[in-house]
Structures are given as structure tokens and as C-alpha cells.
Design a protein around this nucleic acid. Structure first.
Lengths: 218, 218
DNA sequence: CAAGTATTCAATACTTTTATTGAATACTTG
DNA sequence: CAAGTATTCAATAAAAGTATTGAATACTTG
């Protein structure tokens, strides 16, 4: 193989892989799957996609070795192929949110609307764990909590938050988190709770970021 | 801004950025620019692109804040916008080369052809520097060496290699490196030198990977 | 094994990306 | 300021990616 052929083959292959993740619908699917495996139906419910379209995007991701599937009963469950990919995906997000002015602006506007501008990051969180006066709140659906969560977190899915208000003390500092920087559940939680007079901030990132950080520090 | 709008805006923006680097020609341009700034003409010489086409791709990268340009005399020089991007790009390469079977196969075939299968990685290299019996050889064009190189390396551009053969001792172990895993200069150097009976291996990665590693360990 | 459900496939129209061509612009140098 | 060079722009045709639709498949359950 000549040098030019080798280069072309490598860059073509690389571009093909990158293309497979360069689509808003597929990025959202990846984000969903970073919480754990989901059926096609589960993905459809969380996104605006039709079933056929979601299935098609999943095939693209599968052909590029980003996701894998297993069949159980009538359902097909998809999940990310490896933590190495998850780590790469998070690097992309982190770069985009910090280095692309346009995206940073959109994110700040969103956080402003939800009074969640002064977010806590993972490093800060670490100094807070074990502190009696801090309550770490996981507002994702409970399936996702059960699949994995940040050590010490309490699960109260967003849609049950209002009925659990009485459980919270207004003296404690509440840190709400969900799926990651793009997830709006924690923003909503901050909005609701702060309007009721609680001390609450959101975690900048989410469960998968915490998980990868744990893995990488070992 | 409602949750759905926010998500759509973020995923659209993210996809747009990823699309800008999901093209073989643009990936090759990025690789060139990771060695230092280059004029449009310089990029054209190193690739198979026409001038107009290269310029067009450069505009795409510029609009997505991947590269920046400056004008000096008649020439426009392009360079990568930040080391943060370079670090992300290298994460992508590393993932692709290790996790995508197809690309791994192409790379191994290439290395086999050039007798450079048992490459040295950056960690191993670190244990070798200062060793009198190891010669670290930079075979990139000398402009690139001057722009920056691995500490302790000696510059002998690939096209001058044959005329410098007499300078090498067959007792020393030679480690050849160039622009990175996709660069074929080091492979060629290994082929030539090993056929002449020298003890030679290539470095798995290249100058930019070394540089980012230095930056990140501080 | 018939009915029902989950998923994929195949075909289509639509949109976006890409390479190519030739002209336009901007700058330098004699 | 005319001639030459480097780069970009604009228009086009070809190729690739995307969403939608309806049919086909595969599996479960009664």
C-alpha cells in the first residue's frame, strides 16, 4: 500500500465514523444511551423521532460500532458499545460547550431562564460529599437511577418532585443533577425548588460524566 | 426557551461542528495544521486538493472556529485555533485507531509493509530519553522541526535520509517519528534503515501528541 | 396457528455536501 | 500603474445524507 492510499483509507474511515455521530438526532440518541440501554420505543418516547426514523439512525450507529443491540422477547435493546466511546463523546461535549461561543451562549441563556447559572462542577462536588448539609438529588427517571448513580445521591424523579417537597429542609443546600450538561431536568428542578425558597444549584455535568471520571481516576 | 428548543439548538450546533471535521480532506488539513501554520499553497502541496477546493474546505473550518488565518504579504497562513481542539482531535484519532477494527487493520497492514509493526509509544519513549544508545530521529521537513520538536531529537528530513546514512552507528537503536499515527514518513524511514541493517523502530505517535502530553502533565 | 406488537426494510422525494470550473479580488513587485 | 501571483467567490452538477411512508419480518401470547 502506497502512502497516499493508506492516508486516504484512514481519513475516509475516520470521516465515516465522525459522520455517523454528526447528526442532531443521533447525538440525542447517544445521550439517551449514555444513561444505560434503551429499547427503540424508549428512545422514541424521549425524542421527537418516528419509530422508523429512530430505527434507521440506530442502524447507522450500529454499522459504525457506536452502539450494540440485544434482543429480549419482542424488544430490541440498544446500548453504547464501550466506555471508551462515552469518554470521547464527553470530550466532544466539553469542548463544544466551552470553546464554541454560539453553544456557550445558548447554554447560558437556558441556565439564566432557570436560575441555574451558578452550577457546581464535579471537582467542587467532590469537596461536598459527606457534608451533612448537602443533599445530592438525582432527578432522572428511576430506571436510570437504578442502572447507576452518583454515590450518596437520593432519587426523586422530576415528575414526583412536587409531592416530595415536604421532605426537604430549607437549611440544606440541594445539588440537583440529571443526564449531563444538555439535560433539562435538573434545570427544571432548580427552577421549581428555588421558587419555593430552597437553596439549590445544579450540577454542571451528569451521571455519565461522573462515572467516566471515576473510571479514569483508577 | 423550552426544553425541546434548547436541546434542538444544542444538538444542531454540536452536529454542525462535528460535520465540519467529518470529511477526509478536512481531516488531512487539520493534521497538516497540527504541525504548525501553513499557507494555502503549503496545504495544497501536501494533499491532493486543488487550490479552490482547499480554500473552500478552509472556509468551512474557519466558520466553525477550528482554524484561524492571518495574512502576510500575498500569503494567507492558516493554523489551528487552540490546543484544546488539538487535544480533542487526538482523542478522536486514538479512539478510532484502537476501537475501530477496520482502521486498526489498515494501519497494521501499512506497518507490516514497512516493517514498523513493533512501534514505541510515548510512555516507552520517556524511559529511553537520555539513554546514550538511543537516537531519536525527526524525519519531518525541517520547517516543522524548527517550529517545534521532541526534546533531544535530531532533524533529518526524509528526503535527505540517504545522504546521512554514514552518520548513524549500527549499534545505536534508532527511533524515527514524524507527524503522528497517520504520517508515513517514519514508516518509510524504518523501511529504508532496517533494510540497510540498522536497529530502528518508529514512534507510534508524533510531535503533536508529544506536545499535548507535555501540556497536559503540567 | 391467528392476532397483535416491535422493529426493520425498501422506495421515494427532499435537502445538504462536495468537487470542479472559471471569474473576481487583493496584494506585491518591477 | 501594469503584470503577476495567491486566494476567494459564485455557479453548477454530481453524490451523499435524511425523513417519510407503507410493507415486510420476527417474535409473543392467547
Amino acid at each position: 500500500m502506497k502512502g497516499r492510499e493508506f492516508k486516504d483509507a484512514m481519513y475516509d474511515g475516520l470521516a465515516k465514523m465522525l459522520k455517523s455521530i454528526s447528526n442532531p438526532a443521533r447525538l440525542e440518541i447517544i445521550e439517551m444511551l449514555s444513561q444505560g440501554e434503551k429499547s427503540v420505543e424508549g428512545i422514541v418516547q424521549a425524542t421527537n423521532l418516528t419509530i422508523a426514523n429512530a430505527s434507521q439512525h440506530l442502524q447507522v450507529l450500529k454499522n459504525n460500532n457506536i452502539v450494540k443491540s440485544r434482543k429480549e422477547k419482542q424488544y430490541v435493546y440498544y446500548s453504547l458499545v464501550s466506555d471508551d466511546f462515552l469518554s470521547l463523546y464527553q470530550h466532544v461535549i466539553k469542548y463544544a460547550v466551552h470553546e464554541i461561543a454560539e453553544l456557550e451562549k445558548i447554554m447560558n441563556r437556558q441556565r439564566e431562564d432557570n436560575k441555574s447559572l451558578n452550577a457546581v462542577n464535579l471537582d467542587e462536588l467532590e469537596t461536598m460529599i459527606g457534608n451533612e448539609n448537602v443533599l445530592l438529588l438525582d432527578v432522572r427517571p428511576s430506571v436510570e437511577f437504578e442502572f447507576g448513580h452518583i454515590t450518596g445521591a437520593v432519587s426523586i424523579p422530576m415528575n414526583e418532585l412536587m409531592t416530595h417537597l415536604k421532605d426537604f429542609s430549607k437549611d440544606k443546600e440541594i445539588i440537583a443533577y440529571c443526564r449531563g450538561p444538555f439535560c433539562v431536568l435538573a434545570d427544571e428542578a432548580v427552577k421549581v425548588l428555588s421558587e419555593k425558597g430552597y437553596k439549590v444549584r445544579r450540577l454542571d455535568e451528569g451521571y455519565p460524566e461522573w462515572k467516566i471520571k471515576q473510571l479514569e481516576s483508577n
